[in-house]
């Protein structure tokens, strides 16, 4: 199991970060997106090489309206 944006889910073997981001419509060039795994930000330059491991807690965020 992994947790993505607070929701627990199953994951296929070999799932990597780009594939997971793709589910959310996020590509390598998407602007205003950031990712953290287990409380640490994964810089965009390292998205491609980041594998997903069982138990990972992943946060995928974007820029929204705010005060």
């Amino acid at each position: 199991m992994i947790t993505v944006n607070g929701k627990a889910r199953d994951h296929a073997d070999g799932l990597d970060l780009p594939a997971l981001l793709g589910e959310a419509g996020v590509g390598p060039d998407s602007r205003g997106i950031a990712v953290a795994i287990n409380g640490t930000v994964v810089p965009r330059a390292r998205w491609a090489e980041r594998a997903i491991a069982d138990g990972d807690a992943i946060e995928i965020v974007k820029v929204l309206q705010g005060g």
Binding site: V4, N5, G6, A24, V26, I60, K62, L64, G66
Partner: peptide
């Protein structure tokens, strides 16, 4: 603000 992406609803 910074908010979670909706995994179903796009980014």
């Amino acid at each position: 603000s910074i908010r979670r992406v909706d995994m179903e609803g796009g980014a």
